[in-house]
Nucleic acid binder design. Structure first.
Lengths: 222, 222
DNA sequence: CATGAATGTTAGACTGGCCTAACATAAGTG
DNA sequence: CACTTATGTTAGGCCAGTCTAACATTCATG
């Protein structure tokens, strides 16, 4: 079975389950999935049951949700589609990095394997999308995320941004104003715990970031 | 209401009803629609009823099917999407003209108005798709089909191809072999009625075309 | 460790889109 | 012009996906 034969919602569930393990540790819950997909928990519960019946996830009632190897392969393919499409929209159609997420979210269910392949070729087999996220390779090879949230970096360290979550377009526009993007270097000045603020220096400017912003930025030491 | 808010099948029905009037005269029947969409007539009957309820078509039981102005606007927008996408796939992603129909048929339901606009700009506001079909303009201006089927041209006439139906990819590949495409000039040598064959001269080659091929090619005198 | 709060599941209803089978109407022909 | 055949519609069923409301389980805290 190829990923194109799944329903759009099945593709969404699988992608979300997989994505939840890419940057976080804790397994995803029904409630969290429902919130992210803007549906009720009962809907997710139902959907998971259907996926389990197809052998794409394992799930006992009230138990944890895990991808089977088949489910994981489909999930990775969807992530590949999403990130290639985002890259394509930016590089070929001139979209801003803040505009591509929602468009890709729809297109990923509609494009053929052929089209994904041609996009990949046209772009020269890119390895990262406009937000810095790694693009899984076509042959399903393991896929190396790297970096840690900005919130976990010790003060005084200078780091390079590896990825920025694409979930919030407004936040991305704010980051653009600040000159923050993948591969931007910055210095962490301080974490102020009770203010929940992380202060960074980027270029010659000092900026305070709240928790949602600081958690959206992942960095590596350099 | 924008066309994106309709269901995919509603978009398909409207596009098909409109398309049936573009090159033919007779109004489309439920049976013909069912066959072209590969569903049962009862399904089409149902679908038409839903469209009528939304005010997009007028239809009394056993009566003819007509688009309302709103329905027509949506239909034309879908045709525009389809043809822009086909052009895009050929020009930007290197598809062959025989490969684009099915892909566009899916994508047309998924792309946003924004994406269509950017594609249109990227392509320089093209007026014809890879098969020669006119691309309706974004403001819904009337849309001038032109030409007549090759089968209706008098022998000895020299004509120019304006469009070739994109319905059959195999046929398109055959036409490519023959060097036939939009803007190709050819001479009609004869119609042989009981053989149902039209003989044409293209370049320095004489070719016999059966009825399905000859009806797929539309031409103007030059 | 018991109980209440949080979380997850099931039941039942609805929609769109499809089907088959039965029925209704229209069209064409002897 | 009546009757057969072709065409179209309705009825009833199914599936996926959603909802609300009721119920079940787990967890955390007093």
């Amino acid at each position: 079975m190829t990923v194109s034969e799944l329903t759009a919602s099945a593709q969404d569930y699988l992608k979300m389950i997989w994505s939840s393990t890419e940057w976080a540790e804790a397994p995803i819950t029904v409630g969290a999935m429902a919130e992210r997909m803007a549906v009720k928990p009962s809907t997710v519960s139902d959907g998971i049951r259907r996926l389990a019946k197809q052998g794409l996830v394992t799930h006992a009632p009230y138990g944890s949700i895990e991808l089977t190897p088949a489910g994981r392969a489909h999930a990775v393919e969807m992530v590949r589609r999403h990130r290639l499409l985002e890259t394509f929209l930016v590089q070929i159609l001139g979209y801003g990095w803040d505009e591509v997420h929602d468009e890709a979210e729809i297109l990923e269910h509609a494009v053929s394997d052929t089209m994904i392949q041609r996009i990949d070729e046209k772009l020269g087999h890119p390895t990262r999308d406009p937000h810095g996220d790694p693009i899984p390779s076509g042959n399903g090879l393991p896929h190396p995320p790297q970096g840690d949230p900005l919130t976990s970096v010790e003060p005084e360290r200078t780091v390079t941004i590896t990825r920025i979550s694409d979930a919030d377009p407004d936040m991305l526009r704010y980051f653009t104003q600040l000159g923050l993007g993948p591969d931007t270097r910055l210095q962490v000045l301080a974490h102020r715990p009770y203010a929940d603020v992380t202060t960074i220096r980027v270029g010659d400017r000092d900026v305070d970031l709240g928790p949602s912003a600081a958690e959206a930025i992942w960095v590596v030491a350099n």
